[in-house]
Simulated assay, not measured.
Amino acid sequence: MSRLSNKSASPLRYPGGKAKITQFVSHLLDLNSINGTYIEPFAGGAGIALNLLYADKIQSIVINDLDDGVFSFWNTVLTEPEYLIERIKKIPFDFADQEALPDSSVLQSIWEEHHYRYSKNRYHDMREKAFDFFMLNRTNVSGIIKAGPIGGINQDGKYNISARFNKQTLIDRLEMVYQHRDRIKVTNFEASHFLAQLAEERICDTSNILVYLDPPYYVQGKNLYNCYATDKIHELVSGQLLENNWKWLLTYDVAPQINMLYPSTQVQKFKYGIHYSANKKGNFQEYMFATNALTIESFANVTLTTI
């Protein structure tokens, strides 16, 4: 068991990653006597999920993501982590050894190789896609697959693609996930379909769960993610949440279109502040909605304001 932290232990970097509210979510588990399964239908880097699992706050986690790159990565970590680890060892740069850093032209060619393969998406081996996704996640600005490399195409910026690539740290994180593989389930459904499967208990038993949803930003999602939710998907997800009796929590960027999907008569509605570095840096307000069945209160670095 590890000490519960708001720092991410995920091998992935993610724009809008929510690991920083881990202690708040852990407090909700305690308030609501939940210790069974923690579920993320839009998992991404799964920062909160892994933190809770490693601290034994929860018995198991379910990581779901529609993005094939994300799914390929998590599936490979749980089944063949040695493939990823051996590939990492062969990468000719390491943040921990800047003296051995290759020339900028070599860094540029390495990034372009992974970017080209991933953009073509002609993989015959899921492991290859998993590794290319991982490399772009670790070497792109803010971990955004659609963004360019840290340091620019010519690798002449203040930082370069090694800035978030400490080999031993990444290997340790992959091995940590694998050590807990028997308590982790990974799926690859569109979120509303995932929730429909959950309602039929095809995913897991639903008597002792917390479902935490952090969908792609409504406004900026299409600019940040390969898989982003359409208006219809946002609507379908809200329908599933309002129809079922699970204990669930939902965070969103502040958008009136989302606010309309969750009537105050049916859910608890709040705003809270959070710091981001993706796209534009600073502290921003977000929505936090919760089922009326969930006991919820401000805790740690999360101060809720009722709306």
Results as ranks from 00 to 15, higher is better:
145 I>P: 00
7 K>G: 07
140 N>Y: 01
170 L>K: 09
28 L>E: 10
49 A>D: 07
115 H>K: 15
11 P>C: 10
170 L>F: 09
270 F>Q: 02
112 E>N: 08
259 N>Q: 11
189 F>V: 02
37 T>I: 12
94 D>R: 13
194 F>S: 11
53 L>A: 06
144 I>C: 00
100 A>M: 10
296 I>L: 13
213 L>A: 13
83 Y>N: 07
182 D>E: 15
49 A>T: 05
32 N>H: 09
123 Y>P: 01
24 F>C: 03
44 G>K: 00
87 R>E: 14
54 Y>I: 02
184 I>M: 09
147 A>M: 00
106 V>W: 05
161 I>C: 01
151 G>R: 08
177 V>E: 02
179 Q>Y: 13
51 N>V: 08
149 P>V: 00
79 T>G: 02
36 G>H: 04
210 L>W: 06
188 N>H: 15
230 T>M: 05
12 L>I: 10
267 V>A: 06
263 P>F: 14
172 D>F: 08
40 E>K: 02
115 H>L: 00
138 R>M: 04
79 T>C: 01
4 L>N: 09
241 L>T: 03
202 R>H: 11
268 Q>M: 11
41 P>R: 01
174 L>N: 09
225 Y>Q: 00
133 F>N: 00
62 V>N: 05
63 I>C: 03
24 F>D: 02
135 M>V: 14
180 H>A: 13
179 Q>G: 06
255 A>H: 15
182 D>H: 13
58 I>A: 05
75 N>P: 02
258 I>V: 15
171 I>A: 06
176 M>E: 12
203 I>T: 10
76 T>S: 10
141 V>K: 07
257 Q>M: 07
117 R>E: 05
262 Y>D: 03
291 T>H: 08
183 R>E: 11
166 N>D: 10
272 Y>P: 04
44 G>R: 00
266 Q>S: 14
67 D>Y: 01
11 P>W: 08
252 Y>D: 12
6 N>V: 03
86 E>M: 08
57 K>Y: 11
265 T>Q: 15
192 S>P: 04
256 P>F: 04
246 W>V: 09
282 G>W: 11
206 T>P: 04
295 T>G: 04
39 I>D: 04
284 F>G: 07
268 Q>E: 10
169 T>W: 12
5 S>K: 08
254 V>C: 14
212 Y>N: 11
87 R>L: 10
37 T>C: 13
218 Y>H: 12
273 G>M: 12
28 L>R: 00
94 D>I: 08
279 N>A: 05
33 S>T: 12
42 F>E: 04
45 G>T: 05
211 V>S: 03
93 F>Q: 05
188 N>P: 02
114 H>N: 01
31 L>I: 09
258 I>N: 14
26 S>Y: 04
297 E>D: 14
10 S>A: 12
43 A>M: 06
75 N>S: 12
216 P>E: 01
119 S>W: 02
166 N>A: 14
123 Y>A: 09
298 S>A: 04
